[in-house]
Amino acid sequence: MDSSRALYADPGLPDRIFRGVARGGGGLVLAVMLLVGGFLLYRAWPAIDRARWSFLTTEAWEPDAGNFGIAAVMVGTILIALVAIVVAVPLALCGALYISEYARPGIRATLISVVDLMAAVPSVVYGLWGLFFFEGAILPTARWIATYLGWFPPLGVVGVDPTDPLSTETVYTSSTFIAGIVVGFMVAPIICSVMREVFSQAPAGEREGAYALGATRWGMIRTVVLPFGKGGMIGGTMLGLGRALGETIAVYLIISPVFVIQWHVIQSGTSSVSSLIALRYGEASPFGMSALMAAGLALFVVTLIVNFAASSIAARSRSGAASDA
């Protein structure tokens, strides 16, 4: 009569050591990550404890006077990121569709390399381009938008008469609009390479099926490629949004900081959390440092939410496996 027995495999000493080292490596990384998060929270706590809920609603940033909050900088950060996404997503989507569906196979490999390289271009390079070239080039358009679309409040500009031909154009510089477009160009290749990866995985059988039913190329894209790549498109957009929220240098070089909520995206003066940190860390008192930590923590929480939303959306779709950074 056979008796049931417990299954046990003796991995041997070398394997135990291997597992120990691997677990130790994982634990070390885990410790570093938790230390970063924990330390941020620990150092930010005095400021959060003092400001309480007004931390979320105060616009000014005067930590030593006890009057500080992230309302203005967080709104600025989110507006810049939104402008960036509005600019980047159509460009990235069309770029990705072009590379995966329209480009001839001969130039496809080159284009993929170019876009991947662009994703690695340092942000300071985009900042220099934005500051020295793009800002001047976009001013007439910003002025036109303010003049003819200014009836829509976010696009209006306060304190200037757009119909006056002699009015200064400096009111349109250093705005959310310009910073957002530059950041948009910066994140477009990142979004594009995620989307292209997903589109190229759309099953050939379904493509051929669509063609066999008489679809045009666009008909095939609309009914096969885009639905298949939906998860990757959302995941890539979220990834770009996360990068746009955290971008420092390109934004810092372009905007002129103000600490009021600036809804007028065309108007000069805006702010972002990361540029606030870059601007104020040097002169901060210990309590001011704590307040900056709290702002950094708030930014981290926002990007974290965006990232987890992206990965959960991507994981639920068919194409989710390909939405890696």
């Binding site: 770029g95 170019v114 390079v125 381009w129 594009c192 190329r217």
Partner: peptide
Amino acid sequence: GPTVRDRIAGVVVRSLGLVMVAALAYVV
């Protein structure tokens, strides 16, 4: 109709894709 939409989509995708690559190349 479907062909017109196909043509327009083809032109838009090609031109915006070109704009993206060109803008990025211009930055560099």
